[in-house]
């Protein structure tokens, strides 16, 4: 099968280019990461991130035939129609909207900065009990669909608002994390958290495009979380 990969080495290339590879997959429905590993055996200068190879570490987010996803849990059959049977090339590009370091590796600093801005840690100033803080199963259920985020950046880098203002708009991933703590019955910093997002950019640049929902490899829904935060802001204001 044909694989077309975005290549750029800052030391030798003036500008990026697409390079074609021929890979023998034996007709198997491999994961995209397996294909990349086969390419790297041919050409060890190809660079991409990977770690757990099972979709929980979030290293190998990339743009696969036009859609962001994790290479390790995207089988060729789902990459795009025609890729598996060789009618179409597998096209791999780095996540859009972030500076490219080399090949498929992007500089995620802006993404992590936005994550840090939402103070992604539990804030509770009451003295801790000798055992755990109690939380009812119903309260615990409120952070399901939020805490599972793996920070792969597939969502934020598919969001036009994040492309335009990656320094000001928090982006879907950070906002999901923000709501993960707002929704946690053990967290006490609700008011401060909300106050920090009540500007025209941090949260309100979300236009409800929902690219984030369509690409999230963990099936999470940042748009819904953003809607909940907006409701909380409204409730606090009126």
């Amino acid at each position: 099968m044909k694989v077309s990969i975005y290549r750029y080495n800052p030391e030798t290339d003036r500008e990026p280019y697409m390079k074609e590879y021929e890979v023998d997959t034996g007709g198997k429905d491999l994961m995209v990461l397996d294909v990349l590993n086969l390419v790297k055996e041919q050409d060890d200068s190809l660079v991409y991130r990977r770690s757990c190879r099972e979709g929980v570490c979030g290293s190998d987010g990339m743009n696969i035939n036009g859609k962001n996803g994790l290479a390790c849990i995207t089988p060729l059959s789902l990459a795009a129609p025609g890729v598996l049977d060789g009618r179409k090339a597998l096209i791999l590009r780095p996540l859009p909207g972030l500076p490219v370091v080399r090949d498929l590796v992007v500089d995620m600093t802006m993404f992590y900065n936005q994550y840090e801005k939402v103070q992604p840690y539990l804030q509770n100033n009451t003295p801790a009990p000798a055992i755990e803080r109690l939380q009812s199963p119903a309260d615990r259920e409120k952070i399901d669909g939020l805490y599972e985020c793996i920070l792969c950046a597939c969502c934020s880098t598919s969001c036009p608002s994040f492309w335009w203002n990656p320094d000001k708009f928090l982006g879907p991933a950070a906002l999901l994390q923000s709501y993960r703590f707002l929704a946690d019955s053990r967290d006490q910093a609700t008011d401060e958290r909300l106050a920090r997002m009540d500007d025209p950019f941090s949260l309100f640049r979300c236009r409800g495009i929902m690219n984030c929902v369509s690409v999230c490899p963990k099936g999470l829904n940042p748009t819904r979380a953003i809607g909940h935060i907006r409701e909380m802001l409204l409730e606090r204001a009126v």
């Binding site: 991130r49 770690s51 757990c52 099972e54 929980v56 570490c57 979030g58 290293s59 995620m108 992590y112 793996i150 920070l151």
Partner: peptide
């Protein structure tokens, strides 16, 4: 060698 949340504990 990886961003900390990519470490194997995550699995």
């Amino acid at each position: 060698k990886v961003f900390p949340t990519r470490s194997h504990t995550v699995s």
